[in-house]
Write a protein that binds this DNA or RNA. Structure first.
Lengths: 338, 338
DNA sequence: CTGAAAGCGCTAACAT
DNA sequence: ATGTTAGCGCTTTCAG
């Protein structure tokens, strides 16, 4: 009715003026406080007519809360973390919080930067996935705001910490191969700077040792969790002409790389070589042959982490259930033929 | 030195008090305005001693800018979009902006919600990737703030729009198969609600028609861009026992699914059936056999989109180069044996 | 139940 | 060059 459409976004004052009330009344209506019904209706009318939306920034300023939660993660774009993020997203969406994702790309410096950004922006909680942040810094953080840590072990923090038993998962994977009769088992490991990689390597070692099997140093191939590294490493290993009948890759992506390398060398999976991965990416059921692997319930972990963050924010005691790392039997392994 | 460490975060007043100056001087020092050198040093001293970081929220409030850019995308966690995001992240990191990612999961409602959230939070720019937002709404948005649109064609907007020639890409993929001598070519398409899927289907049709080839209706298999759909569709098709020698899947994920289905049915790729995908995911070079596919430079698209957003924010004229959709020849196709 | 006014932490006039 | 002050848009006392 009044033709005062300026480019400038509306403020609560505009609404108040149009409704003929004070700004506090408008605020009350928006926040469901007690207001005389007739006034309330009138204000709501104007609110929707003007399609008014209060500034989240102004609200944050006065409420001291932003409805955002910072999520620090190595790499948003990598397949495994993508699953985790999906889980976080899905529960935060329901609690009305907005995730703020930052990739640190395995750089301690960027981790630190990201945390500062989170703090500067006054996020209501932080979820840290993996990484290298010192225990003290985490403790300090947890004193300032709700903090949830995922995938860091050996921490003694008063903070919900979700960890998966990497050692156990790798042990199970290796054990599976051993039970199929394999004795010469190659392991392609991840970067030793990453906790998960170390745990999995150790699980492999221990499974071998417990079975009374020696591990030849040449059997441990250095990878970096990406396909290419495993592809190259596997190719190189085959050229050594050492006998081997099985491969355990520290993640599925490297298993893919190894799979192709074996194929190139004329070795059939699983007829000539059995192959086990780790993660169980959505894809892994669709490669040829479908990959036997250790299932990490990444999405579920993300959900629990987000729920824990929410619990912390609302003063509830977060649950941190144990996650089961199951072996998913598919078609890339078979009993050793003798 | 003064033992006043409260839990409450510091404000500019604390700094001012400690340095014995006014808050405006502190503000000036932080913003590089002219301040007497000695004072400046003193303030900087206090600033770092206290490890003070100004509230981004308060700054946003007064500056009217947030250093954030909203990124609306179907699904953060899907492999193709992950690449795009990586590109966006990498350039926004350098410009000092913080991406705010929202997945809309192919829901117009969520798209709308996300846009509102962006607006509420006063993002400095928005990047919209695909989706269903009406042209008018986009125009309206673009009048309020810098807007970059990715992957929407047929729009007549005064807005930087990055599109890839889906029709052309699919045409090239199909053409490749035809040139290899294939005539009975199956297409697994995506959801017809998605623009890209339609463009690719049309490209397939046109390539067939231009080659004087008829398309049997049974050759067009309905998928949804995920592995499973293609796996099932392919399985079902093979059971029809219709002759065919090649498959063009509308994305790599579906090509993976088809690949497995063919394998299950005892058909060898590429010896019995040639297979072409679309996207060129990082993974696609590592499946067995390595996938011939149309390369969509997703990461580069993300970079250009972010750069365009930045240009818009800084008043520069954004560049929107053409992207080349190359056929990447690998090992999943071969000449038809006669 | 409602309006006036204070104030969240900061920046940008405005005075000095 | 520096300090004082007025807001940014909102919520929340505090009076009435």
């Amino acid at each position: 009715m009044t033709g005062d459409d300026l480019g400038r976004p509306l403020t609560i004052r505009d609404v108040a003026r149009h409704a003929g009330v004070s700004i506090s009344t408008v605020s009350r209506v928006m926040n469901g406080k007690n207001v005389r019904p007739e006034l309330k209706v009138a204000v709501q009318q104007v609110l929707s007519e003007l399609d008014f939306r209060p500034s989240a920034v102004a609200r944050s300023m006065v409420r001291g809360t932003t409805q955002t939660v910072g999520v620090l993660i190595e790499d948003i774009s990598s397949a495994y973390y993508a699953e985790l993020i999906k889980g976080i997203e899905s529960v935060l969406e329901r609690t009305g919080h907005h995730p703020l994702f930052k990739s640190s790309h395995w750089s301690a410096l960027r981790e630190d930067e990201a945390l500062k950004v989170f703090l500067d922006h006054n996020v209501d909680a932080i979820i840290v996935v993996g990484g290298f942040i010192a225990e003290d810094r985490l403790r300090e953080l947890s004193q300032r705001l709700p903090l949830v840590v995922v995938g860091r072990s050996g921490l003694s923090l008063e903070v919900p910490t979700l960890t998966l038993d990497q050692h156990g998962g790798a042990y199970r994977a290796t054990r599976h191969l051993i039970e199929l009769g394999h004795r010469e088992i190659v392991h392609i490991c991840g970067r030793m700077t990453q906790e998960d990689a170390v745990g999995r390597l150790q699980g492999y070692y221990d499974a071998m040792r417990d079975a009374g099997l020696d591990v030849r140093p040449e059997w441990v191939l250095q990878g970096d969790f990406l396909e290419t590294s495993a592809y190259r490493a596997m190719l190189g290993f085959v050229e050594l002409n050492l006998p081997f009948t099985a491969v355990f890759a520290a993640n599925d992506q490297m298993a893919f790389g190894a799979n192709l390398a074996l194929h190139r060398k004329g070795l059939r999976v699983p007829d000539d070589v059995s192959l086990v991965g780790y993660d169980d990416l959505p894809m892994s059921a669709y490669i040829v042959p479908p990959l036997t692997t250790i299932r990490q319930p990444a999405q579920q972990v993300g959900e629990i982490a987000a729920r824990a963050a929410h619990d912390l924010m609302t003063g509830k005691t977060p649950q941190t259930p144990n996650f089961e790392l199951r072996l998913v039997l598919r078609e890339s392994t078979r009993p050793l033929r003798r």
